[in-house]
Amino acid sequence: MKKLYSNKWIILSLVIPGIITFVFAILTPILLSLYYSLTDFAGIGKANFIGFENYKNLIKDKVFWVSLRNSLFLALGFIFIQHPIAIITAAILDKLQGKAEGFFRTIYFIPNVISVAIIAYLWKFIYNPNFGLLNNILKLFGYTNEINWLGKGMAIWSVIIVLIWHGFGWGMLIYYAGIKNINPILYEVAAIDGADAKTTFLKITLPLMKPVIQVNVTLAIIAALKQMETVYLLTNGGPGNETQFLANYLYKQAFNSFKYGYGNAISVVFIIICLASTIILNKIFSEKEYA
């Protein structure tokens, strides 16, 4: 057996499927993207090499910065609104026990099971200023002004609420699994020592959840950066480009405006931002672990 593993050919044959997948499915597309981002390729026809022209334009492109800002807003929304609620809900779920636990766990996860397209249209109708559910509810309370939820100035918040609501189930489920993994003896001991629910949550649940939180926050930031389908279906970046997100803007440039090279430049910057934020996050969390 040992002899077998010291044979280089055997090792190669075992590693090669992984390498091939990586090279052709990940590395080549990224390198191609990098190449096309230096051209004025229009999707069809010939590509002319134009150096860093696309990147220069990108820096001057206001919509790009708006998209980036929106993605960051969304990431902040995930981290400071969605996740705290998700952790608390998960902790409460854990305490519920019995049938109620399963029932609420299912309820909270339902938005994740429904297709994004349906979610988007559902919210489009809820937000509709003329016959939407939200305005009709407000009318019951005496607000007769028809609020244009997806209109100028409001749209980005309305979109972020939908995204937070939609992604809530996933976040919660991961936290819930994390909490379930905490040894119940710890809670028993804490109870004997007279700790109340708040103290147990802060002193036991939260510290032991650190690795889970780390994974979840990283996932949330990446999800925020690559948000596309809900926005595409809900507003397609509109009105104007107010609710534009990076991935959607990339798509719009490449496939609506036929600026394939420019789209690729956005995607390269996009990859860099994703990588950088992952590295920074890992740094932050690992420093904390040593402290």
Partner: peptide
Amino acid sequence: FQNGFETTDYATAFNLFANGQ
């Protein structure tokens, strides 16, 4: 135009008229 015309898609705009709104 209707309130929120900038977020009203093709089918919804058609339906607003076809429903008599």
